[in-house]
Computed example of a mutant assay.
Amino acid sequence: MKIEERKLKISDHEFTVKGYWLDQISDFGKPVDYPVVIICPGGGFTFHSGREEEPLALRYNSFGMHAVVLEYKLIGDTPVYPMALQEMAKTIDWINQQPDSMHIDKDKIILAGFSAGAHIVAAYNGIGPNPTLRKKYQIERYKGQHAAVILGYPVIDMTMKDSFPDDDKVLHEISTDESLWKSQELLNKDSKPAFVWQTRTDDLVNVMNSLVYVEKMVQLGLPAEFHMFGSGIHGLGLATYVTKKPGKDKYLNKRASGWMDLSLTWLEMMNLLGSAY
C-alpha cells in the first residue's frame, strides 16, 4: 500500500488530502481497478477528528477500496461554505486525473462523511450531480462524479433545535448562505444513493437529522438505506477499541460497530463493491 499526503489548490487556497492507495495483488493474474472512498471526518468544523481518518481509511482498504481523507476548510476568517464544496469537487477532479497505473475505478467514487463532515457530503450529494447547482457554487469546471454517499451520525439540518450547531454565530461562521443550512432540501432527482446510520441517543446531533434526509430521499424515489441503533453516544467512529478514546468505554458499542459491514454489504448490493472480482 502507498500512503501519500498532497496539497491541492483552489486559486490561492490550499488544502490537504491523504491517499491510501492499494497495491495490486500478484496472485490475481490480472490488474484490478478498485473503488475509492473520500472520507470527510467530523470535528464540529473546528478540527478534523483523527479517529475518523486513518482508522476508517484502513478499514475500507481491507475491503478492497482505495481511500482518500479530505481535510476540508474549517471555521476561520471566512465561512466554511462554499469553499468546502469546491474542495470536494477539486478532490474528485484530482482522483479523475490519476493515471491508469493507479488502478482506480473512477465510476465508483464513494463519499463518506461523519458528523460535521457528513454535512459537506450530504450537501454535495444535492449539488455535485446537478448542473444548475454546480454552476451556482462554482464547481462546474471540475471533472467527475461520485456514485453514492455514506453518512455517519450526520449533521443535516443546521437550523434544527437542540442539535449542533444550536448557535446562530457558529451557524453563520459555517455558512452565510441559508440555502446550505438544510442539506436535505438540496436533494434532487440527480442525487446519488445514500447509506445513513446514527444512534437514537445521540446527544449532540439529533437523530431527526438522519430521518429528514432519508425521508427526502424516499420522497424523491432515490435508493437509500438507514440504520438507527437503539443506544450510543455521538462520534463513535468504528465503535470498537480501535477508535475508543483512552479510558472512555462509552466509545465502545458492539451493536453500532456493525455499521461498517452493513454499509459494505449495501455497496455490494448497489454494484459499487466487489464486482471487479
Rank of each mutant, 00 (worst) to 15 (best):
V214L: 08
K9N: 13
M217D: 06
L222F: 04
L267H: 01
K216N: 15
K9V: 10
M65S: 05
A123F: 00
I156T: 06
D93E: 04
R134Y: 10
V17C: 02
I110Y: 00
K108T: 06
K189T: 13
L70K: 02
S179V: 15
P99V: 05
E215N: 15
L211F: 09
I109F: 00
S62E: 09
N253S: 07
W94L: 07
D77T: 15
K189V: 12
E87T: 05
D77I: 12
N96H: 12
S257V: 03
K254G: 08
Y251V: 11
V121H: 02
W259C: 07
S26E: 15
Y277A: 13
T199L: 09
W259T: 01
P79V: 03
E4T: 15
L238F: 07
T201D: 12
L180N: 04
D177G: 11
G44Y: 00
S62Y: 03
Q98D: 06
V196R: 01
D107G: 14
T91C: 02
D107M: 08
I139E: 05
E268H: 14
S62L: 10
Y20M: 02
I75S: 12
S11F: 13
H119E: 02
H234T: 06
Q98H: 09
V205W: 00
P79C: 05
K182D: 14
Q184D: 15
H146P: 03
S210W: 01
I127V: 13
T265K: 13
F45W: 10
G247R: 06
M102L: 13
W259R: 04
R134P: 11
S183G: 09
L186P: 01
W266N: 04
D167A: 11
I104D: 01
T176S: 14
E52D: 05
Q219S: 14
G144L: 05
L252E: 08
Q145H: 11
P31N: 05
K7I: 14
S275F: 10
H48C: 10
D93Q: 07
V121N: 00
L180H: 06
P223W: 04
A256P: 01
T265G: 11
L264Y: 02
Y241N: 14
M158C: 05
K135G: 06
N125W: 03
S26G: 11
N125S: 06
T201K: 13
H227P: 02
A276T: 05
F114H: 03
Q98P: 07
G126T: 03
D261Y: 09
I25G: 09
T176V: 12
H172S: 14
I25Q: 15
V170W: 04
H172T: 15
H227Y: 14
Q86C: 02
K161Y: 09
I139C: 03
E52V: 00
N206P: 03
